[in-house]
Design a protein around this nucleic acid. Structure first.
Lengths: 207, 207
DNA sequence: TTCTAATCCAAGTAATTGCTCGGAAAACTC
DNA sequence: GAGTTTTCCGAGCAATTACTTGGATTAGAA
């Protein structure tokens, strides 16, 4: 269940290109037609390499998906860390807005890939990279809590953090998947930030 | 995409039993091993009927899943309607608790089936029965809003209802899927209700 | 009973799947 | 340039899949 490592890492430049082309092709196919239509032969064809080359680097189909998920989650975590670092001293209300907007933005970038990975492929949720990403986000929430000091009013910090994380992750993904004009999307994001502030602080933000 | 009706409805009692056995077998197999392992031959075997009998009633595999999803969603909607009717005059705070607990309970009943249906099978989300169920739940939220009168403080009723519904549905499903003792589950449910109240009213419930 | 329609059966089919294998071509090392 | 390793190739295989078909069995109508 855990040993989703490539068969071998590419050593020459051209094989590195093949390796990446396979993962990129898998991502595009997932976004276009979902997991059911994802076959190793199709991946190889889309990547422009032969099926033999594909299996030179990946021991099986699941590993391709696992490596893709790993990269995807790493990208998201890094972006959210950066967004948190950007906050500085703008106050809790604008901080919440900034983080929420950043989350929607990073999700929207590869929304269909992300949806297919986490909403169609059961084993992805149990991948070490994904559970680690979830831990990292909870850790980030913890840092937010500390930065907010005594403004927060959460009587069960651990459970509340988990609940709010659940609520936010799924809703942010849903907003990112929405097919509406950007203005409307921003409206949803803002309102979500406001509801989140209400949840955490117990009253409305002072604007 | 929409024509997921059985090939023909059973007319005798024995065939009605076969029909139901197929759907029940599909549910159990989905819960046990997910959508990837769900094959028509396995369904027939588990149902105790031949593959030929299965195809006597269902034109294809997708229809079996569609009928199952239809029943599942109908059950949930009906239970939530009943829970709402039960509320009476216990006040908004206890009303929110009651509805949240009812939702967790009904989700928990067939949690693995529900998860497989809505988190692994892409086309289920677009089934008429499922979108109708979603509309029914939004309608229920609307009724809650009316019943709560001016206690609520939601500046964008439509968007807020959608956001809160998203947050609640996914989090309730997540709680139902949690593998923790019932007491802990109740704790999460209670706290979720409190956060929800905070979101909708803008301040803590008076207990 | 006789006739008809409903129900059941499971061996079999065509297509697709993930993946292997034997060897050719290209790139590094000396 | 010779030798070694890495990379690439794609025909093809064994297994599995959703689904068909032709006929046996049963239930209900006459």
């Amino acid at each position: 269940m855990t040993g989703f490592k490539p068969k071998k890492w590419p050593k020459q430049a051209r094989s590195k290109a093949s390796f990446d082309a396979v993962i990129e092709a898998a991502a595009r196919l997932l976004a276009e037609s979902g997991y059911e239509a994802l076959t190793t032969n199709r991946i190889a064809e889309r990547a422009g390499v032969s099926i033999g080359t594909l299996y030179e680097f990946f021991p099986d189909k699941e590993t391709i998906v696992a490596v893709l998920a790993e990269r995807q989650m790493a990208r998201i975590v890094e972006r959210m860390r950066k967004a948190f670092a950007d906050i500085g001293d703008i106050g809790p209300w604008r901080g919440v807005i900034h983080l929420t907007e950043a989350a929607v933005a990073v999700m929207a970038e590869d929304r269909d890939v992300h949806r297919a990975l986490l909403r169609q492929i059961p084993f992805v949720a149990h991948l070490p990279a994904v559970t680690e990403a979830r831990m990292a986000m909870l850790d980030l929430a913890q840092q937010v809590r500390i930065a907010a000091g005594d403004r927060l009013d959460l009587p069960m910090p651990e459970e509340d953090a988990w609940l709010i994380a659940q609520m936010l992750y799924n809703t942010i993904l849903e907003i990112a998947l929405l097919d509406v004009p950007p203005a409307k999307k921003k409206q949803f994001t803002r309102e979500l930030a406001r509801l989140t502030y209400r949840m955490a602080v117990g009253r409305d933000p002072m604007v």
